[in-house]
Amino acid sequence: MLEWVYRGLRRGRVTTGYPHRDEEPFLGFRGHVDVIGDGPVSESVCPTGAITVQAGDVALDRRRCIMCGECVARYPERFAFHSTYETAEGVVRERRRSVHVRHVDAGSDGAEEWEIQALTNPYYDVQRLGIFFTASPRHADILLVTGGVTEPMREPLLRTWAVMPAPKAVVAVGTDACSGGLSGLPGVGSVLDVDVHVPGSPPSPIAILHGILLAMKGLA
């Protein structure tokens, strides 16, 4: 047992300073896609229909975006990956109390669960920010929902939400939860009022943490 402790200590600290410090994201991090520049764009470039063109104006619905990068590859002058962390420093200053988070899988592909679980690993360690995962929805302030809502999960999702005490917030985690994405299911918005959308397929742990911090701001 002592050897475990020794090994743990020898590894040193790996925890991110986010959201208190600006930090270089890990290589290959994709935050979201920005629309830039000028030029013609075909809507069909997007596999999920996130891009709409109206009278030459290009709009990108981030809730539908799976960050596959097809638009960036085909129109590098019109689309670019936004690959820096957005700090939620202001949010953290306002925070006074801890929050408890409950998660419900309404029909995800399984990857979102991995990324939420990653929040408790030493790299992100959200307990340091007073964020805890709870088994009972009666203790929860924030509901994380992954996946578009399947018919069998609609009722368990509503029941979980119903027993959570106010004030409470819903965070839709992942493009599937935000809009149904490629799954063709209805998004969480069809069942509950969503407070924060965290797109991404799956969103990175930092994006999920950002979403939780924004939801905390709404609770304050």
């Binding site: 419900v104 899988d105 995800s108 669960e113 939420i116 679980q117 995962f133 088994a135 368990p156 979980t160």
Partner: peptide
């Protein structure tokens, strides 16, 4: 809906 972050 199980205790912890698990799939349904």
């Amino acid at each position: 809906v199980r205790s912890g972050v698990f799939e349904a």
